[in-house]
Amino acid sequence: MAYVVINKERCKACLLCTEFCPRQCLGVDAQMNSRGFHSAALLHPEKCTGCRICALMCPDVCIDVYREAKAEPVGGKAKA
């Protein structure tokens, strides 16, 4: 599982990220930011693979990308 964190105040809604996301995870935020832009938003987190293409194309460096840590059983990983 992966996800992106979009800095909505920095975003100017050019929406290049939504255009380039290969899995159509991103869309437009329903709320306006303080400068009057409906920023990009992660609408379908379940589809995100953390490929970074949105962040690569963002002209305003608004997007951080994370991959979720795998859940480990209590007591740590079993030795192979």
């Binding site: 992660l42 002209p59 460096v61």
Partner: peptide, 29 residues
Amino acid sequence: MTTTLCTDEQVFGRSAGLTEARMHYCPGC
């Protein structure tokens, strides 16, 4: 899913070579 869990691995972030300033360029420039 918009909060940052400290155990998650960040695979893309802002470069230390940039300030935190918001750039004035037109949208999409």
